[in-house]
């Protein structure tokens, strides 16, 4: 089953101030979508609403026509500007923890495999608090790919990554989209946006094609 993640008539207000207004959006399988807009225009807010982390003031988020519930969250891989990790746990423990939350079998082996993939096997036993920004970003990417999601919602995924790991993740995302996954990516770089199938922007709180 291929799911469509969709927003219908979504409004979001913070302190009575509209950030998003009347957003209609359908993310089709296999599509790569880029969103770029100025700072503070509501990109992260949009991703949080899509991920079910933030409740829209009005409107609905649906997965294959049904409200986004616990089961549907399994299909989403979400990366926000915060890495969503625990500073007191090591890199490996973080991944094992999330693998278990997603009820994956053989959590330890899976965590080790992903640590090797993202090149963190040397720092696997180091606490995340002691990681550099790029290391945290890699681990956060491993965390959101770990459970094999069908939709990736990424908020500035290449932020802080070095050239090599950036190329690695770009390749990975392309392969993901070719295999039928939906990629939704927030970026500030026009050249990154141009590589995608569809470019969106937010203007006066409304999402437009650009």
């Amino acid at each position: 089953m291929k799911g469509v993640l969709a927003l219908t008539g979504v409004y979001k207000e913070y302190n009575l101030r509209p950030v998003l207004e009347d957003v209609h959006l359908r993310l089709e399988p296999g599509q790569r979508v880029a969103l770029s807009a100025p700072n503070g225009s509501g990109k992260s807010t949009l991703i949080q609403i899509l991920a079910g982390l933030s409740r829209p003031t009005r409107g609905a988020v649906t997965w294959s026509g049904r409200p986004l519930d616990a089961a549907a969250r399994r299909c989403l891989g979400v990366l926000l500007q915060q890495p969503m990790l625990y500073g007191d746990l090591t890199g490996r423990e973080n991944l094992v923890f999330f693998a278990r939350l997603y009820r994956l079998a053989e959590a330890r082996q899976l965590a080790d495999r992903w640590l090797a993939e993202v090149g963190l096997d040397d720092s696997a036993q180091v606490r995340v608090r002691e990681y550099s920004k790029g290391m945290k970003q890699r681990l956060a990417l491993a965390r959101c790919l770990l459970h094999g999601p069908r939709v990736l919602l990424l908020d500035e995924p290449f932020d802080g990554l070095d050239t090599a790991s950036r190329a690695y993740f770009e390749g990975r995302f392309d392969a993901f989209a070719k295999a039928g996954g939906t990629l939704f990516l927030v970026t500030h770089h026009p050249e990154e946006a141009r590589q995608m199938d569809r470019q969106l922007t937010i203007r006066f709180g409304r999402v437009r094609e650009s």
């Binding site: 982390l53 969503m84 990790l85």
Partner: peptide, 19 residues
Amino acid sequence: AKEQEFGGWMGPWLAPIDR
């Protein structure tokens, strides 16, 4: 404070479990 530090609390929030 620890849950907030790197936004860790949102991790379980995304997982397919009853919150």
